[in-house]
Amino acid sequence: MIANEVAYNGKVEGDVIVTKADAVINWIRKHSVWPMPMGLACCAIELMASAASRYDISRFGMEVMRFSPRQSDCMIVAGTVTYKMAEVVRRIYDQMGDPKWVVAMGACASTGGMYRSYAVMQGVDNIVPVDVYVSGCPPRPEALLDAMMKLQDKIGKESSVKALTKSASAVSS
């Protein structure tokens, strides 16, 4: 953890901060996750509850729910993904700018949950890569917040610079 933190001692360094680029980038990223609430079914209500007064997701810098995929970083898939909807979920995911993360909220989004039927996709991970799964039907808002904190940890450990240079060289080549 130490290596990732910003080490700063005013007496020694003056106004200069020395740190790893990864640490700064990740620090910025993880404290301003803008979720794209993919509210599909019942779990969306708990998603709303976690944005509302008692649970207040803005404590984590995540209250900026953006319904436009272009403006968001993290897709929270809250609800049952049916086969008819799957295509739309994937398209929206494709429209999100990198870097992007996906949280599968609830049993349905993770595995199909209690809906073992002809119309329901058995887990959203069939079409998009999922970073964090949240169990529960529906998960309580606390569980979602916990998942978001786990996601923050995950973001904190990414090698962002490497990913940046890799995608930059991929574009130039």
């Binding site: 049952t80 049916t82 008819k84 909807m85 739309v88 809906y115 073992r116 119309a119």
Partner: peptide, 22 residues
């Protein structure tokens, strides 16, 4: 139909009480 989960078909496959959660 984007949230059609097949509840009516599911109902035909379980007992009356099992359907309550649905």
């Amino acid at each position: 139909g984007y949230l059609h989960r097949g509840d009516e078909k599911i109902a035909e496959n379980m007992t009356y009480n099992q359907f309550v959660p649905y």
